[in-house]
Amino acid sequence: MHIDATEKKWIYLTFLLTFAGMGVLAAYAVMDNIHPPSNVETVDSAALHLSKEFNEDALGVKREADGSIRVTMVAARYGFFPQKLVVPVDTPVTIRIASADVLHGIHTVQSNFNTMVVPGYVSEVNTTFQKTGVFPMFCNEYCGLGHDFMWARLSVVPKEKFKL
């Protein structure tokens, strides 16, 4: 085996860079508790209308006892329900979404809210919206020929203007 001296330095540097990258990401995950949405929770997508959590009356924005906000949504071709949401800025929000039919995805610009919505599973995202304004929430996974037209509106309002 022949390994050149410069090559050896590059090998060390490569491992150093790679492990440094992993270390930074691991540190953020552990210290700031940043994890992608991963709750591994099943649901019968064909019977959402009969479920306690995802029936039509239960959808929307609610305030929990600890002051945090809970949003319950259904994704179904070709819309998100409810289509308009109002949440307070700088407040912890838990969003739970289930699909009534096929695969969907949803993200909002200028936030880290981004999740797939997989039939048979509940998606749960914990985030805090840090900017006020009206933001589109797009379906970001091909769900059929009407996919382009599937979106919702999120209004992030100052805390004092938020009412339920």
Partner: peptide, 25 residues
């Protein structure tokens, strides 16, 4: 961002993914 896999597995796969940077470099 898929809901049906747990974050621990995702984290382990992230480590594995970064390892491919080694032969690429």
């Amino acid at each position: 961002v898929d809901p049906m896999q747990a974050d621990g597995w995702k984290f382990l796969h992230m480590i594995g993914t970064f390892m491919v940077a080694v032969p690429t470099l």
